[in-house]
């Protein structure tokens, strides 16, 4: 009965969704008016970043990204509050095999370097602070899985996280003081497609990379502490 009602409801929703979206032609030029064309035409001159998605995320919609980072921080804080227990359960898992342990020890620095590369080059190539932070967190996850005694210092993690968030806000306030608005570009743009270009965009993305990496590592460690 319940399933029948659900299927009926889904048929209703699916019919209207499909009949709406089949009217929208796929793959035609739809950026001729509105904000997309403006970003495409003026983005390289105004921000100096070769990757337009980065320049939208960090520069044009930078305030939005600040809110996003705040949501991540609130989620990590809420998880810590929910999963807090007075006596942490001792991890009774076995150590991984020698092959996994040796491989993890060799791979860990390479994964960290890859994550740093991804967020430092966020304004030139695909990638950025969020992707690089996720890659760094997965490197730490490999170490958590391989070594039973491996643990991270939560004090250092929260210091890194809060100072990276402060750097983001301070760069924004400097833009307000010396430029035109919050998060305005106050540094020289440089030539496009070189590492030192695009003004404050690489600085903000490096801060976001550190913040996301520390946050996701703390999140994984909080969840791993609840299992035996």
């Amino acid at each position: 009965m319940r399933k029948a009602i659900a299927v009926l409801f889904l048929g209703f929703i699916g019919y209207y969704l499909l009949s709406t979206f089949l009217l929208v032609p796929f793959g035609v030029v739809r950026v001729l008016e509105g904000v997309g064309l403006k970003y495409l035409q003026d983005g390289l001159q105004q921000t100096g970043a070769a990757n337009l998605v980065t320049s939208i995320v960090v520069n044009y919609r930078g305030f939005d990204t600040l809110g996003e980072v705040t949501v991540l921080f609130l989620a990590a804080t809420g998880m810590g509050a929910l999963l807090y227990s007075k006596r942490p359960t001792e991890r009774a898992r076995q150590n991984a095999s020698v092959i996994v342990k040796t491989g993890a020890r060799i791979l860990f620095p390479l994964i960290i370097i890859l994550g740093a590369y991804v967020f430092i080059h966020g304004h030139l190539t695909p990638g950025g602070g969020f992707q690089g932070g996720a890659i760094i967190a997965s490197g730490f996850l490999l170490m958590f899985m391989s070594y039973r005694t491996y643990h991270v210092n939560h004090v250092i993690l929260s210091r890194v996280e809060s100072s990276a968030g402060s750097v983001f806000v301070i760069i924004g306030l400097l833009g307000l003081a010396y430029g035109s608005s919050f998060l305005a570009n106050i540094l020289p743009l440089g030539t496009a497609n070189t590492l030192f270009s695009a003004g404050v965009i690489p600085l903000i993305y490096v801060a976001v990379g550190f913040k996301v990496g520390a946050e996701l590592t703390a999140l994984l460690d909080t969840m791993l502490q609840t299992v035996k």
């Binding site: 064309l37 990757n51 337009l52 995320v57 969020f130």
Partner: peptide
């Protein structure tokens, strides 16, 4: 939407706005 090559112009690219939106949504 990446100006990796100097010969690329604005007319050769897909719309970057939904991509930035989805990048936020995944995280």
């Amino acid at each position: 939407p990446i100006f990796s090559n100097p010969t690329l112009t604005a007319g050769d690219m897909v719309d970057p706005v939904p991509q930035a939106l989805v990048l936020t949504a995944i995280v």
